[in-house]
Simulated assay, not measured.
Amino acid sequence: MRIPYIMTPGPTEVSENVRIARSIRCTNPDLDNKFYDFYKETCNRLGKVLNTKNEVRVLCGEGILGLEAACASLTEKGDRVLVIDNGIFGEGFADFIRLYCGKVVFFKADRKHAINIEDLKEFLDKDNDFKYATVVHCDTPSGVLNDISKICPLLKKYGILTVVDSVAAMGGENLEVDKWNIDIVIGGSQKCISAPPGLTIVSISKDAFSSMENRKSPIGSFYCNLLAWKNYYEDKWFPYTPPVSDIYGLREAVDNILKDKEILNRHKNIASSTRYAVRKAGLDLYTEDGYSSTVTVIQVPDGIQDNKLREYMEENYDVMIAGSFGYLKGEVIRIGHMGENARYDKVSYTLYALQQSLEKFGFKCACDMSSCFLNSVKNTENNHYKHNLVCQ
């Protein structure tokens, strides 16, 4: 089977050492005490990525599992929950909250912009009686990045627990869980972490665990019960059998991140240079601010069908990029420059393939996108180098 370059905003390319790690001989994780140590060490290393001393767990299920588990574990019947909505996944939290009989209150914002902190503060000054609030770090369908470094501390000032979907940002954007007062943050293996799909990463604060322990009613789920994981190591008991090979691969992917001291700068430089090349070519970005370092979302030019464009790219240039869904279906295309995709050569070639495909369908680019991208990268890195010299 021919597999193209996967330049989508997740799943992403997986490095060879991660693939090899997944081929290690399996043990019985429920009975092998050494695996409990391995799992705990993996969680601790993830804690370093997240800059947290909170408990970290790896759950068997794609990132959506973590979103539902957070809502299942915190929500009781009648709880008022604030859903901060400026994107498809932001709004989607409401479905999980309603599923567990919570009362959803929306703070809605323009989906082409990051959340305005002053507007949120004004809203909270009038109504802040919420058990917890949900917010998306990077809303992948639109590429908008929300400033959780300001949003979460603001919520905590009002005594509101914070739940953050960082599935499309964790590992590619700075994340300071403890400093930013994040009670639960959720990530996924297949995005910036660049392991295969199938695992959720979740960190859980003492306040979040306390809220779960002091519920009046039991958590209405087994698989989505985060409290069941609290004392797994002391008890030497997993709530369900962990996927050993997936966790071996995840550990290697996490080590790749920890060894890569320039990973966040590289994501940032690639993202800004991609946006520069896209604009210079005469294309329009979807968002107007709050740009993510992990995904670029481009409006499809008039007269071009996004699915035909993407099919042509894949068939002729071996590059897969993504469309979107919901209200953005057919309106935008998305390039994922996250994790193993955040490499200069891969993004340069992707922009070349995109330009050739656009011109095939009648859109004439105003510049050579690949060259514009590489020139911008060079200028950005030179400025970064000069800045470091001055700082030293």
Rank of each mutant, 00 (worst) to 15 (best):
residue 56 V to S: 07
residue 126 K to T: 05
residue 191 K to I: 10
residue 334 R to D: 08
residue 1 M to P: 09
residue 221 S to V: 02
residue 314 E to L: 11
residue 199 L to R: 09
residue 312 Y to G: 04
residue 243 P to V: 13
residue 248 Y to L: 00
residue 168 A to F: 15
residue 350 T to I: 07
residue 105 V to T: 15
residue 309 L to E: 14
residue 18 V to N: 02
residue 328 L to I: 09
residue 373 F to D: 04
residue 8 T to R: 12
residue 350 T to L: 08
residue 109 A to C: 03
residue 80 R to Q: 05
residue 159 G to I: 05
residue 2 R to L: 10
residue 43 C to R: 10
residue 299 Q to T: 11
residue 285 L to S: 11
residue 268 K to W: 01
residue 220 G to Q: 14
residue 302 D to H: 10
residue 302 D to F: 06
residue 238 F to S: 08
residue 115 I to C: 08
residue 143 G to W: 00
residue 151 I to C: 01
residue 100 Y to C: 04
residue 387 H to V: 01
residue 152 C to W: 01
residue 263 I to V: 14
residue 161 L to F: 02
residue 104 V to C: 04
residue 261 K to R: 13
residue 368 D to R: 07
residue 174 N to W: 02
residue 150 K to D: 06
residue 331 E to T: 00
residue 222 F to I: 13
residue 76 E to V: 01
residue 166 S to V: 05
residue 21 A to M: 01
residue 131 K to R: 14
residue 354 L to S: 10
residue 288 E to N: 09
residue 386 K to F: 04
residue 204 I to N: 01
residue 386 K to D: 05
residue 285 L to A: 13
residue 156 K to R: 15
residue 341 N to A: 10
residue 319 V to Q: 02
residue 362 G to N: 06
residue 304 I to T: 03
residue 386 K to W: 00
residue 12 T to E: 10
residue 345 D to T: 12
residue 143 G to P: 00
residue 317 Y to D: 11
residue 289 D to I: 08
residue 254 V to M: 00
residue 351 L to H: 06
residue 322 A to Q: 10
residue 25 R to C: 07
residue 110 D to Q: 07
residue 230 K to A: 08
residue 163 V to M: 01
residue 45 R to Y: 04
residue 120 L to S: 10
residue 19 R to S: 03
residue 251 R to D: 14
residue 252 E to W: 00
residue 191 K to G: 09
residue 205 S to V: 11
residue 325 F to R: 14
residue 381 E to F: 07
residue 11 P to D: 05
residue 157 K to P: 03
residue 222 F to Y: 13
residue 383 N to M: 08
residue 131 K to D: 00
residue 181 N to C: 13
residue 168 A to I: 12
residue 392 Q to T: 00
residue 92 G to H: 12
residue 193 I to V: 14
residue 29 P to L: 06
residue 198 G to A: 10
residue 265 N to L: 13
residue 107 F to G: 11
residue 377 V to C: 14
residue 26 C to A: 14
residue 137 H to R: 04
residue 335 I to E: 06
residue 311 E to G: 06
residue 336 G to I: 12
residue 10 G to F: 03
residue 285 L to V: 09
residue 159 G to R: 12
residue 365 C to N: 07
residue 145 L to Q: 08
residue 184 I to W: 05
residue 21 A to P: 01
residue 211 S to H: 09
residue 316 N to Y: 01
residue 264 L to G: 03
residue 390 V to A: 04
residue 352 Y to G: 00
residue 94 A to I: 05
residue 280 K to C: 15
residue 199 L to E: 06
residue 36 Y to V: 04
residue 102 G to Y: 05
residue 111 R to H: 07
residue 43 C to N: 10
residue 128 N to H: 12
residue 291 Y to C: 08
residue 171 G to F: 04
residue 113 H to N: 13
residue 322 A to W: 09
residue 125 D to N: 15
residue 190 Q to E: 15
residue 130 F to E: 08
residue 62 E to D: 15
residue 296 T to Q: 00
residue 63 G to R: 00
residue 197 P to K: 14
residue 376 S to Y: 02
